[in-house]
């Protein structure tokens, strides 16, 4: 029951970021992360370029890929210094952002109402559960028939995939809220809409953000699948197009780029979640008082 932390100024904004970064340098986390990546690259290098073991030697090795990636004059035409690399990243990012945003805007309210109202759930849940297990690849022909061009069907597929995840997680989030909060709110004289805004929404946030992290991953997954089948630009298209013309180095580069970009987007969702649920992060930070 110490009073520490009660007085004194908490750093904000950039200062807080610097403080956190400085703190994390004193933990093994960043070093282990670098060691992990280093070890993976080393294994990749040994199998592929040093010992040349079957079947690894069939794909371009790390030295080859990184050299190409950083080259001002890439052999296969794409690197950090060419414009089409960034166009592909941007096109994919834009599609994922639109799809993810649409899915969130539609999925979160749907999930909230489904968790909140038994009647509404009885209406909607069977439909959702029938459509949800259909793999996103099975939707591809339908999307192409429904929408013309490249952009709309791809965004449609990304939206669809992450919509199901978001709606389901949000619904489970509402159902996970402890009954005692509803009872307390009832005692304190909350009307139904008050309960919705003050208990249902904040109470399901932890689940919603778990769902959103999965859902942005799913959005990338379905986007790339769609881009590989029908596309003009984008990282998925880049992978498929380089494969078709045997530019394996570019293909691996696109794969790694996809991994990095995907990682950054889910980190952003995580950060947004932590920001909106500071009541939770602080609690974890302090441990049991």
């Amino acid at each position: 029951m110490s009073n520490q932390g009660v007085s004194g100024h908490a750093p904000t904004g950039f200062q807080y970021f610097l403080y956190k970064t400085w703190k994390s340098l004193k933990t093994p986390m960043p070093y282990l992360a670098f060691a992990g990546i280093g070890l993976w690259l080393l294994t990749y290098f040994l199998l592929n370029e040093y010992w040349k073991i079957f079947p690894f030697f069939k794909i371009p090795g790390p030295v080859e890929v990184i050299t190409e990636w950083l080259s001002r004059d890439p052999i296969w035409g794409t690197s950090l210094f060419t414009e089409d690399y960034y166009i592909n990243i941007w096109v994919s990012c834009r599609r994922v952002i639109i799809g993810f945003a649409l899915a969130t805007v539609l999925g979160v309210p749907l999930g909230l109402f489904m968790g909140w109202s038994k009647k509404f759930k009885d209406y909607t849940f069977p439909v959702l559960e029938t459509l949800r297990p259909i793999p996103i690849l099975a939707w591809v022909p339908l999307a192409i028939v429904m929408f013309s061009g490249f952009e709309t069907p791809i965004i449609y597929l990304a939206t669809l995939a992450s919509f199901f995840v978001t709606a389901l997680n949000t619904m489970l989030g509402v159902e996970s809220i402890d009954e005692s909060y509803f009872r307390a709110a009832g005692c304190l004289g909350s009307k139904k809409r008050h309960v919705f805004i003050n208990v249902v929404v904040p109470g399901s946030l932890p689940f919603i953000f778990t769902g959103l992290q999965i859902s942005i991953g799913v959005a990338w997954f379905s986007l790339v699948a769609a881009e590989m089948i029908s596309g003009d630009y984008g990282l998925g298209y880049m992978i498929m197009a380089s494969y078709m013309v045997n530019k394996y180095t570019t293909m691996v580069m696109a794969m790694l780029t996809l991994g990095l970009v995907g990682w950054i987007t889910s980190a952003m969702v995580r950060a947004a979640g932590n920001r909106m649920m500071r009541w939770r992060a602080k609690a974890l930070g302090q441990g049991g008082v």
């Binding site: 009872r183 005692c187 304190l188 904040p202």
Partner: peptide, 17 residues
């Protein structure tokens, strides 16, 4: 339920947020 018969619960029911 109403505020006139208010319950203080077994396990705390403070809104954690």
């Amino acid at each position: 339920p109403s505020k006139d018969t208010l319950v203080v619960f077994q396990e705390t029911a403070l809104m954690p947020w």
